[in-house]
């Protein structure tokens, strides 16, 4: 471009419009929220039923978790690898960086809690719910998406209630937490993404 003469007002406009463009690029298709939301929701409900029916091997349903992990790992690999000249995946926003750190921290904490289940006893599920709340609450803040923040706030409350709930019914509260802070906001996020 020839050295165009621009005046200070034009400079301001350029800065503003570019920063706005970069910010509107912050988007998420909600896949992970929906996938994990439904998977863990269904496992919790199934586990609850097996507990009520006093079936012995109900806990086996949780073996679906590592499978889910493998599936999302493969999904994210292809999502990043996919070369599509029209896709807007040509920019890495700070939001993505922060979300990455958040979910790594989430994963580590979840592993610690589940590993320490023996020591934590009946506090295990309430702590897991509390962790779910952190995940969506902070994600909502980063993505500036209210339903996730509200969903997270509900889960914080559910976590407190679950501390006072008998173990068997805690599983149902886990399911409720996933419904309000992952499944519903996840689908809303997906709708927003599609309409963009």
């Amino acid at each position: 471009m020839e050295e165009q003469n621009i005046n200070p007002e034009q400079s301001m406009q350029i800065i503003q419009s570019m920063i706005n463009r970069a910010q509107s690029n912050v988007s998420d298709n909600g896949f992970y929220f929906i996938f994990w939301g439904w998977l863990v929701f269904l496992c919790s409900v199934i586990f609850y039923i097996t507990l009520k029916m006093e079936m012995q091997y109900g806990w086996l349903v949780w073996s679906l978790m590592p499978l889910g992990g493998i599936f999302t790992g493969i999904y994210s690999y292809y999502e990043h690898r996919k070369y599509n000249p029209d896709a807007q995946k040509k920019v890495k926003t700070y939001a993505e960086v922060y979300l990455g750190y958040l979910w790594i921290a989430f994963g580590i904490s979840l592993c610690t809690i589940l590993f320490m289940m023996g020591k934590l006893g009946e506090s295990t599920y309430p702590l897991v719910i509390n962790l779910y709340a952190i995940g969506t609450f902070v994600s909502g803040g980063i993505l500036r998406f209210k339903p996730l923040i509200i969903g997270g706030a509900f889960s914080f409350a559910i976590a407190i209630v679950s501390f006072f709930t008998p173990f068997e019914n805690q599983v149902l509260l886990v399911a409720l937490s996933l419904l309000v802070s992952y499944i519903i906001p996840g689908h809303l996020l997906r709708n927003k993404f599609k309409n963009q």
Binding site: M18, V91, K92, T93, Y94, V97
Partner: peptide
Amino acid sequence: SLLISVKEAEFTH
């Protein structure tokens, strides 16, 4: 201005 708001961006972007 664009680069200041993101971590990195490709040429095509």
